[in-house]
Amino acid sequence: MGKAKQYDKGFKIQAVKLTQEIGSTRTAKELGIPVNTLYGWMRAYKEGRLECGVRTPGNAMTLSEEVAMLRKKVKQQEKEIRRLNELNDFLEEASTFFAASR
């Protein structure tokens, strides 16, 4: 079996842009790449995994999902910070109590 050919990100982005202009079959033929490879890059672009600098409604949805995920993460971190602050307060009180009992 041959080694899979690696393409750099810039090439992939240019291929996706060209596909949007002239279509996937023609782009694949002109660039000499398998059309299935190009379909994978197009899917990655639509899912937001391949950034081309252009926002589409598909990307906007991906961004809104990312915002929702980040908000959830911030909420979890705020909860963890509250828990750690409470634990820190408890430990300060305990150390004060034990220091006073000496």
Rank of each mutant, 00 (worst) to 15 (best):
K5S: 14
Q77A: 15
Q20C: 01
A28H: 11
K79I: 00
K3N: 08
L50E: 11
T96Y: 02
Q20P: 00
T56Q: 08
R49M: 05
S95T: 08
L70N: 06
E86C: 00
R43E: 13
V74Y: 05
A68C: 14
A44C: 03
S64E: 11
Q77G: 11
V74R: 07
R43Q: 05
L87K: 09
K3D: 06
C52N: 07
I81D: 13
Q14K: 09
G2D: 08
G48T: 07
N88G: 09
S64P: 01
T19Q: 06
E65V: 14
Q76I: 00
D8Q: 15
Q76R: 06
T25Y: 13
K17G: 06
T62S: 08
Y7D: 08
L31M: 10
N59K: 08
M69T: 01
L50S: 12
K72H: 09
R82C: 02
L84P: 01
S95C: 14
T62F: 02
L18Q: 11
V54R: 14
L84E: 13
A99G: 14
E78T: 14
A99E: 09
N59L: 12
F11E: 10
E51S: 11
S101Q: 01
L70R: 07
V67P: 01
K75T: 07
T19K: 07
R83W: 10
E30F: 09
P57L: 04
Y45K: 15
M42L: 15
R43C: 00
A28I: 15
Q6M: 07
G23F: 09
R55Q: 04
A99I: 05
A68R: 15
L84Y: 05
V67Y: 03
K79C: 02
K72Y: 04
G32S: 15
M69Q: 11
E51I: 13
F98V: 11
F90A: 11
A4K: 14
D89Y: 09
R83S: 05
T27F: 02
G2C: 14
E51A: 12
K75H: 04
I13F: 04
Q77R: 03
N59A: 02
E92T: 06
V54Y: 05
Q14M: 06
Y39C: 13
R49E: 04
F11H: 12
T25D: 15
D89C: 02
E65S: 13
F90W: 09
G32V: 13
I33H: 01
T19L: 08
I33F: 02
V74D: 11
V74G: 01
